Computed example of a mutant assay.
Amino acid sequence: MSETVIENLNVEAQEVLITPAKLKAALPLSDTAKAVVAAGRDTVRDILDGKDHRMFIVVGPCSIHDVELAKDYAGRLKKLADELSDTLVIIMRVYFEKPRTTVGWKGLINDPYLNDTFKIEEGLHIGRKLLLDISEMGLPTSTEALDPISPQYLQDCISWSAIGARTTESQTHREMASGLSSAVGFKNGTDGGLDVAMNAIGSAVKPHRFLGINNEGQVSVIHTRGNRYAHVVLRGGSAGPNYDSVHIKLCERALEKANYPKNIMVDCSHANSDKKPELQPLVMEDVTNQILEGNTSIVGLMIESNINPGNQKIPADLSTLEYGVSVTDGCIGWEDTEAALRDMRDKLRDVLPKRKRLV
């Protein structure tokens, strides 16, 4: 009598992955890097608590596809961060995981060589090494927490985390966010509505128990304390942008009604710039004007920026990739990034210290 197979019918293979502990032992955080990560986290918390008058700016490539390019960008950003540090706290956007509606390149960790070889363990090594290198430069980093397993491998290097519009509604990601060591921003839903983000904040600030892995790679029940530094990120939606003063006021009222701190971050990209990256500086200008006119709730911005503007498709011949150009969403180039951030700093330098925030 033949045995009927009923398990793993659609699983072709399984690979045992390096444990988080072994990856961290192979690529440990130096004392310098630890200090940068901790200082970045503390500064973001102080801004969210109203103890630090500055704004934090998460800026960098839509996704990381070239490590040397990322380090080139980081070196430039570090110099600019030092220059603007009296007004703006600069955190580099270092995104390794990309959500996909159907199919497509899922990011450096999933497919580090951009050729469908899916060397995920090598991707984890490459990604962690890059985070260490950027931290050693003195620049804090941020990322999107997309895969619920990867934070055990990388979160100790991260100063701020995002939960994307497609996953803000996910119970798995809300539970995960409740245990992240950094502050976490929840984006509004793809329709532009606030309810999903409000519910996500309400969930993430509370303790949870859920299945995950521990530092030794064992399947475990994870017990979290809750993350009280969860906040909202406005990124627009199918109905259009939501960074204008009317939408900001509506968001303030929703936060107040829910008894959450009135902390709002604006994503200058995505629907807020009609997916036209060159419009991001206009969003920054509008937000700056709102603060000049008395806004006290906007505490941060997110900007998609690269060395060169625009984006490109991943070619079959990777040697033809254009240097410094995104392979996912379009970005503004470095010159526009510098100009827009300097302009914002110059206009807000004397204003932010006088801003009375009621968090």
Rank of each mutant, 00 (worst) to 15 (best):
K98P: 07
N10F: 15
A25R: 14
R342C: 13
S142Q: 11
R342I: 11
V351C: 05
V67W: 07
G212H: 00
K78E: 06
A33I: 04
K78M: 04
L69M: 13
I307G: 06
S245Y: 10
K79P: 08
R128H: 08
D350V: 09
L84T: 01
L29Q: 04
S159A: 13
Y229F: 08
D350I: 07
M55S: 02
D31L: 11
L348N: 03
R342H: 11
I291F: 09
M302S: 07
M92P: 06
L124D: 10
A239E: 15
L318A: 13
A35H: 12
F118P: 08
G217P: 02
V44Q: 01
R166D: 06
Y229K: 00
T4Q: 13
D274V: 08
A81R: 02
V58D: 05
M176N: 01
C268Y: 00
V205P: 02
E216P: 01
L146A: 07
V5I: 15
M92Y: 13
D82C: 10
E175A: 09
D52F: 05
N289W: 12
Y73S: 08
E83K: 06
R128D: 14
S181L: 14
L124N: 06
V11S: 14
D147E: 14
T190V: 10
I307M: 14
V233P: 01
N215Q: 15
E304T: 02
L27Q: 08
M55H: 05
D317M: 08
I248C: 13
K98S: 10
K106F: 03
G75H: 11
N242I: 09
G60E: 05
L80A: 02
V67Q: 11
W334L: 14
V16Y: 11
K24R: 14
R45N: 00
D49E: 10
I57D: 02
E304V: 03
E322S: 14
M265T: 02
I64Y: 04
T328H: 05
G179T: 00
V299D: 00
K276W: 06
V16P: 07
Y229S: 05
P61N: 07
N115P: 09
K187I: 09
Y95V: 03
G107I: 04
L132T: 10
S150C: 15
M137D: 10
L9C: 14
H53S: 11
E175L: 07
G138W: 12
I120V: 15
A13Y: 05
